[in-house]
Design a protein around this nucleic acid. Structure first.
Length: 301
DNA sequence: CTTATTTGACCAAA
DNA sequence: TTTGGTCAAATAAG
């Protein structure tokens, strides 16, 4: 019940954000479109909740709780808190714990941002599992769940090593409606999105598939970008041997080099921007390169 | 070779 | 104990 109200408020907040940033977005149709997707998605969920028998206003004793949550989201709306707070507000339990806008990141006891989404299964392809969203996931487990006849799959972000990206998701085929997956997202991405060709992200958003909330949030909320660690921080750059030296281009391809040996800048640039080998995606080159370096660095510690 | 998935073991919480 | 989540060895894929 509470989540119904929260969804309404959240949807309104998104719409309000869209309205405010409309002048800036006029030149950015992609972001504009994603913003609209997010809004549609929120209200679609709302519609589903309502059709499942959820009511907006409950009995009087429940209204007490609602007022608390309402106050929470009111505060969030006025103080312009970050998107993770909103996600937690959507997650009613977290709100009942009494999170204030200030003590969110500092306290650090419970940083679980959880979002539940329903996604249409591949309608005719018969392909069993992968519902595509914009991220690359790596499956790390599968479990049979007590009440369900279908197993639950566990995924984590492929680039977990890189910046310890905490994002995870669970995918479960619904017991009654096997044509629908329930996807639970936990934790936000601290890594960047996998951008294949920058041109179109359209195909995944086609039929019934709507990107997770943080897609929208990450792109539209500049505070996220500020708080996220830079892609290449100077510390790492220095450890890579940021000052020049001789070139050992050959070792790069295999991603293997001695621990203490300095790595020439030229080689890093090579790895980043040179699509030398067979790989099609430049971004993946960067990732694999950095992942390797990260591994080597970790082993020393 | 390297990287991803599968799958039983393992563990914490209830 | 049971249940849900994760780990990791074996295996598959590229």
């Amino acid at each position: 019940m509470e989540e119904t109200i929260l969804l309404i408020l959240y949807g309104c907040k998104l719409a309000k954000d869209l309205e405010e940033s409309l002048p800036n977005l006029a030149t950015q149709p992609d972001i504009l479109r994603k913003s609209c997707d997010g809004i549609v998605r929120v209200f679609s969920n709302l519609k589903e909740l309502l059709s499942n028998g959820h009511i907006i206003f409950g009995e009087s004793h429940e209204l007490q709780q609602t007022d608390n949550i309402g106050a929470g989201i009111q505060e969030w709306l006025t103080t312009g808190g970050n998107i993770y707070q909103a996600m937690d507000l959507l997650n009613a339990q977290a709100v009942l714990g009494g999170i204030g806008p200030g003590d969110y990141s500092a306290g650090g006891k419970d940083d679980g941002h959880t979002t539940v989404t329903k996604v249409a299964a591949p309608q005719m392809g018969n392909l069993d599992l992968p519902p595509e969203d914009g991220y690359t996931w790596r499956k790390y487990g599968q479990k049979d769940i007590f009440g369900s006849k279908y197993p639950r799959s566990y995924y984590r972000c492929t680039h977990q090593k890189f910046y310890q990206c905490p994002a995870k998701k669970q995918v479960q085929r619904l017991n009654h409606d096997p044509s629908t997956f329930e996807v639970t997202y936990r934790g936000g991405h601290t890594c960047h999105m996998s951008s294949t060709a920058p041109s179109t992200a359209a195909p995944p958003v086609e039929q019934g598939m709507i990107p997770p909330i943080h897609w929208l949030s990450m792109e539209i909320n500049p505070s996220i970008l500020e708080s996220t660690a830079p892609i290449f921080d100077m510390q790492m750059f220095r450890e890579l041997g940021g000052t020049s030296s001789s070139s050992t281009a050959g070792t790069l391809a295999s991603g293997r080099f001695p621990d203490n040996q300095a790595l020439p800048v030229a080689d890093m640039a090579n790895a980043m921007f040179n699509s030398s080998s067979s790989s099609s995606n430049g971004m993946e080159n960067i990732f694999s390169f950095m992942d390797d370096k990260w591994n080597a660095r970790e082993k020393k510690i």
